[in-house]
Design a protein around this nucleic acid. Structure first.
Lengths: 194, 194
DNA sequence: CTCCGCGGAATGAATATTCACTCCGGCCAT
DNA sequence: ATGGCCGGAGTGAATATTCATTCCGCGGAG
């Protein structure tokens, strides 16, 4: 198995994933033709099928890759012994940093309805992230730092607000800078604090 | 020009819009074949094109219809002289009622990325609703009832949280009942109040 | 009152296009 | 040389759109 050109071994697979990310983010799964993905990735249409069994397998690989990245960026190596306030600030900063660094991934993951083509293991990944967050929130509720609503409702409020703020920013209504980030964070903390 | 059968004059047009709403909500625009819309509407495939120039014209008519309905439900005939707190409560109740009454419309309007096929007048409608809300928010900010963030950011926070709460509810994490509605409303008010 | 034939809405099979996916000849690293 | 990765034209299915035909209610002639 030779490495062709200057690229690393898996460069085509990654080129395909990159191309698919930007096209799926922009036009959605059904709105994107496989040959277009191949063209943007600068590979032949057939090559896509060397790396992915089908278009559906491709979108699931993409989804799992970026959900995993996001999950790691969010809760990986999370510092211990902080106040609830500081924990939320840290989570918010991480979410924001992820959206700034990977805006296409953020759009792909959060601004599209994936129901209908996600497979079991994509859904399981989604669930496991949700469970992690519920655990985090319930711990903070136990110490009376957060409102005593259902944990998944607090998550929905905070996460929904985050997505809303980022979406409006991407639509150009305000800059997605640190000032906006901190203002929004302050608002959302008020929403969930006890 | 006779009315055929028991239906009113525009019943086919409405049947097509209804069918398209439920299919687009469920599967998205690109994921829905026109003949499927026709089948669900119980009309011939060609009939769709008697009422709409193209699939794109259909989705724009649908979008404008329901954005208009939503806008009217939200700010139409809005009572005057209420406190900021009461105004927000009223808006929230109206949003909630709309989502409960027309869940498919809510999913279609808010849970799908429409960029790419919306025409100028759909986008203009969207803008005008945003402007109305900005006016409302700025009035409340002028009386120091809301935080002094950019109005569009407060809207994004509240609206995003609303969408998040409804989405999680539709996914079955909690019931979309009045208790949930009021808990979420209380959270989001804290996010935006001064 | 009855019946015929007209107008146009409705139809759905046909068409032209697009798409997901396949396959085989060539080409590069070895 | 040569063996396996690639490319991209090819393939059959699906999709948006069209159009020749059907169908129906009405209005006028008898």
């Amino acid at each position: 198995m030779g490495t062709r050109g200057v690229d690393g071994e898996q460069s085509k697979r990654e080129a395909i994933l990159d191309a698919a990310l930007s096209l799926f983010a922009e036009r959605g799964f059904h709105g994107t033709a496989v040959p277009l993905v191949a063209e943007r990735a600068k590979v032949g249409a057939g090559t896509v099928y060397r790396y992915f069994e089908s278009k559906e397998a491709l979108v699931n690989a993409l989804y799992q890759h970026w959900k995993g990245e996001f999950s790691r960026a969010l809760v990986g190596d999370f510092p211990e012994g902080m106040t609830a306030r500081a924990q939320f600030a840290e989570l918010w900063r991480r979410m924001w940093a992820f959206a700034k660094t990977h805006p296409e991934a953020a759009v792909f993951l959060e601004l599209h309805h994936h129901q209908g083509y996600l497979d079991e293991s994509s859904l399981a990944l989604e669930s496991s992230i949700q469970d992690t967050l519920v655990g985090l929130v319930e711990a903070l509720q136990a110490q009376r730092s957060l409102k005593t609503c259902p944990a998944s409702m607090l998550i929905a409020v905070a996460w929904g607000a985050f997505v809303g703020v980022v979406r409006s920013g991407l639509e150009g209504r305000y800059p997605l800078d640190d000032a906006t980030r901190d203002q929004a964070e302050a608002c959302v903390w008020e929403a969930i604090r006890s």
